[in-house]
Design a protein around this nucleic acid. Structure first.
Lengths: 163, 163
DNA sequence: TTGCTAATGTTATAATATTGCAAATTCCAC
DNA sequence: GTGGAATTTGCAATATTATAACATTAGCAA
């Protein structure tokens, strides 16, 4: 079997976060958008792991930071980050993950592990094309697609196999 | 262009509802499950149109019926109906639609019109296969997939074209 | 400075969903 | 039909997720 994809594999996660922040700065500059301290902090928190984080989890950390934030603060930051393609909302979990392909124009497909909670974002052209075809068959003009698959990741599958 | 799919086309919707209820009774019998009056009424309400209905919308109608229901009543009925494949939850809308292919084992794809709100459920083998392949490439074992496409349905597209 | 726009703070509340326990109903073996 | 188990429902409280509305502040250009 090929090596597991990033979230399922031990890795220096600080590097993930650092890279995400660097890319975010670049992208915001290109978009003439302001990556303010709050927005940057929220992005950093979302990137704490490859598990989706709820808006109220973010809020709790901000509170622990000493930042006296209310829900709109978090939702606004998340909206901003989504608009610039830096985070994705996982509709089936009401939670947010860092985008692993920021910048590229894409409609992601998310593989969500029921067991460990990690999410792997894929760019799956075959899937988007199949969806576009299905929509076209119905003369439907797609403009946004939510594709979320829950199941068991390779790591968790091999763990339970040992039991 | 081929005739529009059901939700987008004028039709005798009472027949949709009646058929859905009949099929539901059959399926519940086969499953040895009890389609109680509340459950049946909720299913009927969900089928009032091809637009997804929120749990609290259902609740409001039950209240208007004189049924003194609380949220758990509705959520329990909806859970039951989902378990038996009679309704689907649309994650991106937090709402529910009647299943148009009950009985068949399927993972639907939903085309959600932003304009009229109607939802068309498709069984798109090409899409599920593409998703399965993408998952398999990552050694991920899918067990449930959420595929929701929002956009413009043929009816709404031709309406706005006339403006 | 002044004035404009974008961003944030603040309070309140809306919308969606679940928990836990008690009461009633239904099913089924006897 | 009767008793007991299992399922379903009623009900109160509360948890979780998200937005509205309006005041304030920060950034920046003329």
């Amino acid at each position: 079997m090929s090596p597991s994809a990033l979230p399922y594999r031990p890795h220096n996660h600080d590097a993930c976060v650092a890279q995400a922040l660097t890319e975010a700065r670049t992208i915001c500059q290109q978009h003439n958008a302001r990556l303010t301290p709050t927005r940057e902090r929220v992005l950093e928190l979302i990137w704490q792991s490859h598990k989706p984080l709820g808006a109220y989890d973010v809020l709790a950390v901000l509170a622990a930071d000493g930042h006296n934030a209310a829900p709109p603060t978090v939702y606004r930051a998340l909206d901003f980050l989504q608009q610039h393609g830096l985070v994705h909302r996982i509709a089936s979990l009401n939670a947010f993950v860092g985008c692993t392909h920021p910048g590229k124009n894409h409609q992601g497909l998310f593989l969500i592990c029921r067991c460990c909670g990690n999410v792997l974002e894929l760019t799956a052209p075959g899937v988007s094309d199949a969806v576009k075809n299905a929509a076209a068959d119905e003369a439907f003009q797609p403009d946004n697609m939510t594709i979320e698959v829950s199941g068991t990741c390779p790591g968790c599958a091999s763990d339970t196999a040992h039991d």
